[in-house]
Design a protein around this nucleic acid. Structure first.
Lengths: 197, 197
DNA sequence: TGCCAGTTAGACCGACCAGTCTGTATAATC
DNA sequence: GATTATACAGACTGGTCGGTCTAACTGGCA
């Protein structure tokens, strides 16, 4: 039979398994053996594709996640109602948190706090957050805010997003968090020129 | 001679060492041996004071931190200008982050993402965050907001605080974050009755 | 002085960690 | 068919992990 969903290659499966690990049990909380089991790969494969080992795989996983998220946001800001798009994106993140039984959050946040001794990882996280911040700031600028104000509100949005996901995870109770983020978007909406809201 | 700063007892030193570990390298990122070295205690002591081991010590460390922070906030809301007090508290947190060379963040946030497999710890974190949220919400209510709105803004403040600390750590650059949190406080200030601002 | 609970002390243990090593299968090039 | 580069495979290693165990020390009390 023809494969409807072709099996992703080993490297991709490794990255996916590491993404899942970072989102759930964290960098130090997950052993490479566990990741290899989930990817269905033996040990040698990891060090073939990532000679620098666990840290390099984790950095790749983070860069992938960051890039995917960034692409989604770029699309959102090209749409007619970007703020609604952002709200939907947040809802989506929270929904995936709920679906995972409050186990899977943001891999960048996790790596920030968990893999502090791995410079390669910290760099990947930093670049990821920066790309998000720039995308949001550019988007808000295009909607009519000054670039300084847009940059500030982009950081505020990002901080609230990450903090809200973190609190939702700790509380295992998403509703308050959804309202929280919406409240922030309301604040921002009030600053926009009427036609951009 | 009389001791000007009496040496804290072993249990206290253990808790302090674990607090530091959680703030810097995280739960799984720090071995018990390392913590014991920092506390200047041999291994048996840990399992004497905390028969449940590492997780129980971490839970105690989190509860201590949460209680101390909560007490500070209660004082702030008894003062004349609570919002300024909160701003100062945030500045203080960021300053301690800077002083630690961006290595020491919030132990509750760290434990939320890092120690997901330890129910005792997750409970301690949840209770800590809840106590903070209630303290802030009660404070804002006393300043003239409806309790529903106060509760929402308290969650928003908390989320932004945690997210801002996280981003500051990732970026290793605090200024934008300080402005960020101030911007949120401005939003909240605008909702308060004039005499409470 | 003898006793005893509370505490300190660190040698020790099996499990697991990330990473290395040697070897095999596959696929492209000549 | 021979050669070579790429990818897969897993046994193995030294070190570290959290935790256990037994022994020694300490101060209060009789």
């Amino acid at each position: 039979m023809s494969e409807s969903t072709p099996e992703p290659d080993t490297k991709t499966r490794l990255i996916a398994a590491m993404q899942h690990a970072l989102r759930t049990t964290g960098y130090h909380g997950t052993g490479v053996t566990e990741i290899l089991e989930q990817a269905g790969a033996p040990k040698g494969v990891l060090y073939h594709h990532f000679p620098q080992g666990k840290a390099a795989l984790a950095a790749a996983a983070i860069s992938h996640t960051a890039a995917r998220m960034n692409k989604e946001m770029l699309l959102i800001f090209q749409s007619a109602a970007p703020l609604r798009g952002l709200e939907a994106l947040l809802q989506h993140s929270i929904q995936s948190l709920i679906n995972s039984d409050f186990k899977a959050g943001c891999p960048l946040a996790s790596a920030t706090l968990d893999a502090t001794t791995e410079p390669v990882l910290q760099l990947a996280v930093k670049q990821g957050f920066e790309s998000w911040q720039i995308t949001i700031a550019d988007g808000l600028t295009a909607m009519g805010l000054t670039s300084a104000r847009a940059s500030l509100l982009a950081s505020l949005l990002l901080a609230t997003y990450e903090g809200a996901l973190l609190l939702a995870r700790a509380h295992q109770e998403p509703e308050l968090i959804e309202h929280t983020a919406s409240a922030l978007l309301d604040f921002i909406r009030a600053e926009l020129p009427a036609q951009a809201r």
